[in-house]
Simulated scan of single mutants.
Amino acid sequence: MPTTVHIRNANSADLVPMTDLLNSLFSIEKDFSADGSRQMKGLRMLLGNPRARILVAEEHDEVVGMCTGQIVISTAEGGPSILVEDVVVRSDRQGEGIGSMLMEAILGFAVENRATRLQLLADCENTPALKFYNKIGWNKTSMICLRKTNA
């Protein structure tokens, strides 16, 4: 793990670098498109939500990665679950353990909130991400994601 990188809660000063990270993430996902104003709006909503957490990986006052998590109520679990989204590390810093640090920290958010399960969606063609999640102990399920837009 990189010793000069630390994980902290995001703040409004991080909005621009987080939006840049989301732009890089959404540029490789078929189901989403990069739109800085939308991403910024969503990030602001998360920052103000006590049932959500945005974590950033920072090194020398520079954001090099991020992860978001939101508390949802699971009827299957009979309690809180964490929906993890937006796990992204700057491309030139991938493979250094920063993603693992972020995922460990979001697990801490789950523990704080007595969540019994964490879940996330990953692009089925993003092989590096799928390998990463498998390596850190995340399991595939038999579920698929469906969506309907209302815009």
Rank of each mutant, 00 (worst) to 15 (best):
N23F: 08
H60D: 14
P2D: 15
D31P: 08
Q119H: 09
L43T: 08
V56W: 01
E59P: 00
T3V: 07
G95W: 03
D14H: 15
N11G: 15
D86N: 15
D123P: 12
V88K: 02
R117Q: 14
K30T: 15
L47C: 03
A151K: 05
H60A: 13
E85K: 09
L22R: 05
F109Y: 10
N134G: 15
A34N: 13
M1R: 05
Q39S: 15
I71H: 01
L55C: 05
P80R: 00
D86Q: 10
A57D: 06
N134M: 01
S37M: 09
S142N: 14
R117Y: 02
G78F: 04
D123H: 04
G99R: 01
L107I: 01
D20A: 12
N139L: 12
N134I: 00
I82S: 03
A151W: 13
L47K: 02
H60W: 01
V63L: 01
A151V: 09
K41F: 07
R44T: 12
P128M: 00
I136K: 03
Q94D: 02
G137Y: 06
K41S: 13
S74G: 09
R8C: 10
M45F: 00
L118P: 00
T141L: 04
V5I: 14
S37Y: 03
S33V: 15
A129H: 07
E104L: 07
G69T: 05
L130C: 09
E85G: 11
T19F: 08
S37V: 14
V111A: 05
S24L: 13
I7A: 04
Q39N: 11
R117E: 12
A10Y: 10
T75I: 13
K30D: 15
T149L: 11
T68D: 01
Q94S: 01
R93I: 00
R51N: 14
S81L: 12
T141H: 06
M1I: 08
L83E: 10
D35N: 15
M101N: 02
P2I: 14
C124T: 06
T141P: 12
K135F: 02
A122P: 14
V63R: 00
E96N: 06
A34V: 12
C124H: 06
M101V: 03
D86V: 03
I54L: 14
A105C: 05
R90C: 07
R93C: 11
F132A: 09
F26E: 12
S81H: 03
L83P: 05
Q94M: 10
Q119P: 04
E29D: 15
I98W: 00
G48D: 11
A110I: 10
L146F: 14
L107D: 11
S91W: 00
N23M: 06
E85I: 05
E85V: 08
E112K: 12
L46Q: 08
N9Q: 13
S24Y: 01
C67L: 08
L118W: 02
S100A: 11
V63T: 11
L21M: 07
V56N: 02
N134E: 15
P128K: 00
P128N: 00
E96S: 09
G78V: 05
